[in-house]
Design a protein around this nucleic acid. Structure first.
Lengths: 119, 119
DNA sequence: CGACTCGTACGATAAGCATCGTAGTACGGC
DNA sequence: GCCGTACTACGATGCTTATCGTACGAGTCG
């Protein structure tokens, strides 16, 4: 038994906030976690066809799921099921429409910091 | 008795992180709180000669102190005693050197969001 | 069908944090 | 010297959150 997925029909759908509901504070908070910032950087570098399992994060799978959920619910990423895999992509279009230049500034800042500290 | 302030001689000094130690994650987290984002926006608008008491925040003074401390320790603002008042200013120079465009992008994003939601 | 992989849900846990109230310290003026 | 103002320090509290482990659901391939 157990209650089936609410979306039913064929593909599982994941709830995303519409563009108008994306809040700056939420985006900043999502990006302020090192693990999530790392995810976002890899997504920006690798195009938006990355499945969750392609990220080699130093945390368990439960925690990874949690971080992807936070990123999705804050409006930073878009997630779509594709078979058993879940493909992830940045919502760069929405973010740029709401907050022009913000995502790029953060990505650039992260790159600079990594450069400065990492080598 | 009681142990005197460690800085001693004349003016009280407040600990600020040096520029190299400012971390992007810390800055983003500091800015992700609505109260602190509001403080930063007012600071950006009003020049950097604002004392803590000039902010009319809907929280107690203890909480206000806490937020200013978080902003200072994350490297977002600079605080200097001036008599009994404590003057606050953005560390725009340091932030721009480390993360060019970031502060402006955040401020612009905050303004747009306020415009969109507030009126 | 059966096994395996990918990801989720749920509960637990521990840490962090935003908030408050009260008591206290530093400075300036009377 | 005394009082008021500006800010702080400390303890308490309740909420959020990052993390884990285990058990489970959905899809693919033999």
């Amino acid at each position: 038994m157990t209650i089936p997925a609410p979306a039913g029909a064929g593909g599982r759908e994941l709830p995303h906030p519409p563009r108008e509901e994306i809040r700056l504070e939420g985006v900043l908070q999502a990006l302020s976690d090192p693990m999530r910032l790392r995810i976002v950087r890899e997504l920006a570098a690798g195009g938006d066809e990355l499945s969750c399992s392609q990220f080699d994060l130093p945390v368990t799978k439960s925690t990874t799921t949690h971080h992807f959920r936070v990123l999705r619910e804050s409006g930073v990423i878009r997630q779509v099921y594709r078979g058993t895999a879940k493909m992830n992509g940045l919502r760069a279009d929405d973010l740029d429409a709401l907050f022009p230049g913000l995502l790029d500034a953060v990505l650039d800042a992260a790159a600079r910091q990594a450069d400065r500290l990492g080598g």
